[in-house]
Amino acid sequence: MRSLLIAIFIIAGSGYYAQACDLCGCSASSQYMGILPQFHKHFIGIQYQYTGFTADQPSLMDPAGHERAYSFNNTMQVWGRYHVSDRLQLFGFIPYHTNNGDDAGSAFKVKGIGDVSALLNAVIIKDRNDTDFTTWHQALLAGGGIKASTGKYTGITTLDEEGLPNVQAGTGSWDFIVNANYTVRHDGVGLNADAAYTITTAGKAGYKYGNRLNSGLMAFYWLRKNNFSLLPQAGIRYEYSLHDYDNYSRKWLNEGSGGTILFGTVGLQAYYKRYGAKVMYSIPVAQHYADNDVTVKPRLETSLFFLF
């Protein structure tokens, strides 16, 4: 029971953007840790994410004509948290991607280990007595990390050149992430705000994916009974991606890439003793990506945790 009470201070993990299929398509695809349990120090989990997009572009030679593409991206990811100290938390991510799609009638399939990431977050604000349901509590985490160029990357693809989200397993670049995350709660009702900014670098082929902002505002309610906890949650997520560079050293800006997306998100987390599960579903409510040539589809995310 005590462990569940301790869990009351749910610290949302820092928002974090992985651009394997960014704006992932990544599109504009994105990833964030969401609201994480604090009733054990460490956890390891497996996460599944589904994203997709369709594209409809004017033909180069015939503006009245159209070229169509689509991609469905599945990511299985092992991830976890390690408490370095009371003030430092280390997160790690090892994704595996399976992306299917079609570009103007040419089918493609990509699979493989993606770019491995690590984040180190400092606990800047955290109430000591967070088991009290009758008062206000707050928590603030901030930090940063790195995304290594470990995923398979074969260079600039036709999709890249057309400004579409990356569908390769890797991005070919080392990127840096800064993030902040704030949670406030009173009597089981809470609000979480997070923002993460990914600063990209150019890959070997000279291509540079646009820097990305991933932010969110989620409300949640904590239901408790014996060893069970349920956290229904709802909110919005906003993602903004700068233009890609087709050749960064020559400053060839791909103005047909990048854009913004606003998602409406609902989800549910459940915990029983040392086990947890999560499902989140996000629907784009407004988007302007790649000059409106790309349409980002709804996203699904599920996760299982083991806490220790």
Partner: peptide, 12 residues
């Protein structure tokens, strides 16, 4: 400030 600086995009 980091966000602002990192959001500048030069173009050929």
């Amino acid at each position: 400030s980091i966000l602002l600086m990192a959001s500048c995009q030069k173009k050929d």
